[in-house]
Design a protein around this nucleic acid. Structure first.
Length: 433
RNA sequence: UCCUGAGUAGCUCAAUGGUAGAGCAUUCGGCUGUUAACCGAAGGGUUGUAGGUUCGAGUCCUACCUCAGGAGCCA
């Protein structure tokens, strides 16, 4: 006999089916038992009546402990009081492994502290809240791929072992690479510039590593980033792409994951407002805006988290801040032709104070300009020989951006911490489980 | 690295310097429609570690350890 997944039980009303899963919770009321089963696709309540099953089945059910694995046979009944609309009139229960009562499942359906839960992340993933978040993450990643795949971009992945920094070495994880040193990538961007010159429009998607000693809800040491890169593109094109891309992702989640957003008690109203056009704020205007809000900020610096929050709170959708001073941005940024002290770059700040989810811009296309920048930033020129080649052999205006998947998922889910948006978070003091 | 806060039962938390407690979880008992069920009972403690003050320290002091989230840095 085939078994049925819990999310498909509604198609089997009136039939006797088998489900395979785990005991989520068990309530008892005299000669009635109400076990709740989960199978990864959903939850369903079973009803076991003492006078309708054998004493062995009743006792086997009564002795089930939380997260014991079971195969259950029962009749599917329509039940308006049940959250999923159906319940299972249990006829037979076959435990595969009963969790010992001496060492019960640690995550009871009550409150727990974050350290306790993160130490048990491998079990915490079974809870409905984590399910909702990670299903939305799945949907976001699928939308990312669908977007680029349907807009002429070629997926060309970039290496994780790299020979040198692309933005300095202080935040790189150093690893042994036989008799040499290597670093874990902190961005695929420089390689993207090579692939974009080969294929026109490309993107890479993979894990990224930053050895920043940050201890905030917005940082992980290992996170996933998608980075598109386009040949023959200026800053304007990069901003148009970022805007269209974010709208596509948010719309996808609103269409596909209403149930999960409900589990998270995420208000969808702010997400419904994520429509083009996004406000575009010149750096000068952003500084002025901060001044009007009474925040002390000197022109020329980079925005800190409180500054970003203040800026994004002035708008009801993501805001694109562009033309930061070159001095606070990476060496490869193309200068503004009319104001060379500014860089043709853009940060997209998510709404509701979630901060930067995208950073990008137009890359320096001049060979001489790039050589000068590498010198000014005291970077080892030999590491950039190949990168400079891209400016010797058919240099074109080009640009792109990087989006952190976890920051995007955290924002869309409306949750507090980045660490819940990735299956196994890595932070400054956590590399377990 | 700096700043702030927190470590008490398996978990979440109480406890004016004076007998270490509750809810949940676990076990036992009761209940035929429960929805984080409810009712009754039992077991469960080196109060993060090491010192110090005191007649007496979970509580006050010092150092250390661990964690949290904020700055800086960033996606």
């Amino acid at each position: 006999m085939d078994w049925v997944s819990v999310d498909k039980l509604g198609e089997h009303v009136g039939q006797t089916v088998e489900i395979r899963g785990w005991l989520y919770n068990l309530r008892e009321s005299g000669k009635l038992l109400f076990p709740i089963f989960r199978d990864g696709t959903g939850l369903v309540q079973g009803v076991v009546s003492k006078k309708e099953v054998s004493p062995e089945v009743f006792e086997a059910t009564r002795c089930l402990t939380q997260e014991s694995s079971v195969i259950v046979r029962g009749s599917v009944r329509k039940e308006d009081r049940a959250p999923g609309g159906v319940e299972l009139g249990v006829e037979d229960v076959r435990p595969l492994q009963v969790v010992s009562e001496k060492d019960p499942y640690p995550i009871s359906p009550k409150e727990h502290g974050i350290e306790f839960l993160l130490d048990r992340r491998h079990l915490w993933l079974r809870s409905s809240r984590q399910h909702a978040i990670l299903k939305i993450r799945h949907d976001v990643i699928r939308a990312v791929r669908d977007y680029f795949d349907s807009h002429g971009f070629v997926l060309v992945d970039t290496p994780i072992f790299t020979p040198a920094a692309c933005e300095g070495t202080t935040t790189l994880f150093e690893v042994e690479y036989f008799d040499q040193k290597a670093y874990l990538t902190q961005s695929g961007q420089l390689y993207n510039e090579a692939t974009a010159a080969a294929f026109g429009k490309t993107y890479c998607f993979g894990p990224t590593f930053r050895a920043e000693k940050s201890k905030t809800r917005r940082h992980l040491t290992e996170f996933w980033m998608v980075e598109p890169e386009m040949s023959f593109a200026h800053l304007e094109d990069v901003m148009n792409l970022a805007e269209d891309f974010i709208c596509f992702i948010v719309e996808r989640v609103l269409n596909d994951r209403r149930a999960e957003l409900t589990v998270l008690e995420r208000s969808t109203a702010p997400l419904e407002k994520v429509r083009k056009p996004f406000p575009r704020l010149h750096y000068d205007a952003a500084v002025k805006l901060l001044g009007e809000k009474g925040i002390d900020f000197q022109w020329g610096g980079d925005f800190g988290a409180p500054d970003e929050t203040a800026i994004s709170e002035s708008f009801d959708r993501p805001v694109m801040v562009h033309h930061y001073p070159s001095q606070v941005k990476a060496f490869y940024m193309e200068p503004d032709p009319e104001r060379p002290e500014l860089a043709c770059c853009v940060d997209v700040l998510a709404s509701e104070g979630y901060g930067e989810i995208i950073g990008g811009g137009e890359r320096m296309s001049s060979y001489e300009g790039l050589v000068r920048r590498i010198q000014e930033h005291h970077l080892p020129p030999e590491a950039f020989t190949w990168y400079l080649d891209l400016r010797k052999y058919g240099s074109v205006p080009h640009g792109g951006f990087g989006m952190g998947i976890e920051r995007c998922v955290t924002w869309i889910c409306g949750i507090e911490h980045l660490r819940e948006s990735i299956p196994f978070p890595r932070t400054i003091n956590r590399n377990y489980p």
